[in-house]
Design a protein around this nucleic acid. Sequence first.
DNA 1: GCAAATTAATGATTTATTCAAG
DNA 2: CTTGAATAAATCATTAATTTGC
Lengths: 163, 163
Amino acid sequence: MPQAVSTRWCPTAEQLMILEEMYRGGIRTPNALQIQHITTHLSYYGKIEGKNVFYWFQNHKARDRQKLRRKMIKQQQQLPTPQHEAASFSLTQIPPRFYEEQCRSIGFMCMLPKPEVEAPTAQMDSAPRYRALETLDLFPVRSTGIKEEKPRSTALHVSTSSS
Amino acid sequence: MPQAVSTRWCPTAEQLMILEEMYRGGIRTPNALQIQHITTHLSYYGKIEGKNVFYWFQNHKARDRQKLRRKMIKQQQQLPTPQHEAASFSLTQIPPRFYEEQCRSIGFMCMLPKPEVEAPTAQMDSAPRYRALETLDLFPVRSTGIKEEKPRSTALHVSTSSS
DNA sequence: GCAAATTAATGATTTATTCAAG
DNA sequence: CTTGAATAAATCATTAATTTGC
């Protein structure tokens, strides 16, 4: 069997550390330019593509939120259950809403299936290709105000449309 | 105000016709290469980008399905309502499932916010830029077996995980 | 110890919702 | 109200952990 050594991106320890640091720093939905920068920076530590970064943040954010939700439900169930006024609508709702102008900016773009699956003999992240790293050392990882990411109602769909 | 004449893609009649023709032809989730071709082809009739094509199919498919579902619900409600065995789980499910190995292939890619919003003086789809159209005249619009797009259960989540 | 069998994580896609321009 | 755009939720699928029988 010639090729097909791995189908999906496998982040190296450094890459993961940096990504998590950024996440902790407040980055949630990096825009295209940010992703480009992050990718460039991380490519120093191993093979990586923009979409990997994109997906990583999507998944990390989603699973973080999920974890929080579960914890909340659990807490609620452990509460003394105030007899009167027992919730009549599903809880698990994060506070009211913080909004904060979601950093909506990511755009999609169709991407060709995959350039080629080069069959590496044994060299990958062991031989990092010093990609420039020109633009910046790392961009404002912890600025733009750690937005709490508008929670939006998590359960409860009040579709206002009526047609 | 210098620029910003229009933010979103406004499909021309021809573009729309062609897209619908393709949709009727069975295309639902075109892969990147297909999108590229479609875009190239449609750019002959006016300004258009790959993501427009991507979104168009996404939305068209979703809204088509939505329409069907509503129609179904309506029909169900108009039925004599067979007292016994009233559905205990939400209907609106499209038949069983046809599967057919979904043509999964689209990938995302981060895209810069927007190259530039050229302030057109009055020329857009009136002056189509004859973009090559080299690769093909149009690819197999009605082949690869009109896949009915695996309907997948629309309501009813039987998560097998247990943790 | 170790390798097949399970299960848990998590990368990658698709679908559902929501927002908002026209 | 229609629909392009964008994000979030739900799934799918593959890899890593972990368990289990030997």
